[in-house]
C-alpha cells in the first residue's frame, strides 16, 4: 500500500504542480531542522566576528572606505550612462528594463545535495515573494536560480549543477552560447560551441537575456586558459564565489519596464528588449 502511495505521489508530482501546497505544509514541519542545523555554524561565525581585534577592524574599515569611494565614482558615471542609454533607447522606441529589485538572502549551512547536485538553501521563501525560476546573483556574478520556493526557505540550483544551463554571450564580441554545469563548483562546460567560435582565454561571459529567466548583462564566468584549436574542451570559471559567500541576492527581473519620462516619446510599447549587444 505504501509502495502504491509513493508511486502515485511520484508520478503526480512529476507531471503536475498540484502537490506544491502539500509540500509547503510539510516543509513547515521540516524547515526548523534546517535552521537547527544552521545554528552552530552561524553562532561560530558570530563569535569569531565579535572576537576580531580592533586593528583588524580598522584595516577592514579602511579598505572598505577606499572601495566605497571607488564604487561611488563608478556609480556616478554609471548613472550618466544609464540616462544616456534610456534616451537613446527612447529614440529607437524600445522599452528599457531597469529597476530590478533585489532581496538579500542568507545561505543556510545545510547540505541537501547528493553527489551530483549543486544546490544550496537560503533563508527567504515564498513568504517574501520568492518564486521558482528567479535569478540569484551575488556581488560578483550570477549564482543560479531558485529551484523551489517553500514558505520559509528556498532551494537554489547553482549554475554549476549538471542539470542547469544558462544562456550566455561573450562580452567582447556578443557570441551567443549556452553554459552547462559540470557538477564541480569551479567549472562550466560549453557543449554547443562551433569549431570556429571566436572565443579566447580570459573572455568574460555575461548573461544574454535569452530564455527569459536571467536578465541581460550580469557577469557569469571567465573562460579558462586552453590551447586554441580545442573548442570542445573549453571550460570557464564562474565569477560568483559559489562555495564561499553567505549572502546572495534574489533578483526580480520580471518587473514591468519602468515608465520613462525623460523624452517626449512613449517607449512602453510592450516589446521585449530584443538587441543583444
Amino acid at each position: 500500500m505504501a509502495v502504491a502511495a509513493s508511486i502515485t505521489l511520484l508520478t503526480m508530482e512529476h507531471i503536475s504542480p498540484r502537490l506544491d501546497p502539500l509540500r509547503a505544509v510539510l516543509s513547515l514541519a521540516v524547515d526548523p531542522i534546517k535552521y537547527m542545523v544552521d545554528f552552530p555554524s552561524k553562532t561560530a561565525a558570530r563569535i569569531s566576528s565579535s572576537l576580531k581585534s580592533y586593528a583588524d577592524l580598522k584595516a577592514e574599515n579602511d579598505t572598505l572606505k577606499i572601495q566605497e569611494a571607488a564604487n561611488k565614482l563608478h556609480f556616478l558615471k554609471f548613472e550618466a550612462l544609464e540616462k544616456e542609454n534610456i534616451r537613446l533607447r527612447a529614440l529607437l522606441e524600445q522599452s528599457y528594463e531597469l529597476g530590478e529589485q533585489v532581496l538579500i538572502a542568507e545561505i543556510l549551512a545545510v547540505n541537501i545535495a547528493s553527489a551530483y547536485e549543486n544546490t544550496v538553501v537560503v533563508n527567504k521563501g515564498s513568504r517574501f515573494g520568492v518564486h521558482a525560476q528567479q535569478p540569484v546573483v551575488d556581488a560578483s556574478g550570477v549564482v543560479g536560480q531558485v529551484f523551489r520556493a517553500l514558505p520559509e526557505t528556498s532551494e537554489i540550483m547553482l549554475i554549476t549543477d549538471p542539470n542547469h544551463a544558462i544562456p550566455v554571450q561573450v562580452n567582447r564580441n556578443g557570441l551567443l552560447t549556452i553554459a552547462v554545469g559540470s557538477g564541480e563548483l569551479n567549472r562550466l562546460n560549453f557543449p554547443y560551441l562551433p569549431e570556429n567560435a571566436d572565443i579566447k582565454p580570459g573572455d568574460l561571459l555575461i548573461t544574454s537575456g535569452l530564455g527569459g529567466t536571467f536578465p541581460q548583462g550580469y557577469p557569469v564566468a571567465i573562460v579558462d586558459p586552453f590551447t586554441p584549436p580545442a573548442t570542445k574542451q573549453i571550460t570557464a570559471t564562474p565569477k560568483a564565489a559559489l562555495d564561499r559567500n553567505r549572502e546572495l541576492m534574489l533578483v526580480w527581473s520580471n518587473s514591468k519596464p519602468l515608465p520613462i519620462n525623460t523624452p517626449s516619446s512613449s517607449p512602453q510599447t510592450g516589446d521585449e528588449n530584443t538587441d543583444h549587444d
Binding site: 502511495a5 509513493s6 508511486i7 505521489l9 511520484l10 508530482e13 512529476h14 502537490l19 514541519a29 529551484f147
Partner: peptide
Amino acid sequence: DVLTGRLFGQYAL
C-alpha cells in the same frame, strides 16, 4: 523528501 527537496515519495518508497 521535503527536507532534501526531492521528488515526493522517493525516500518514502
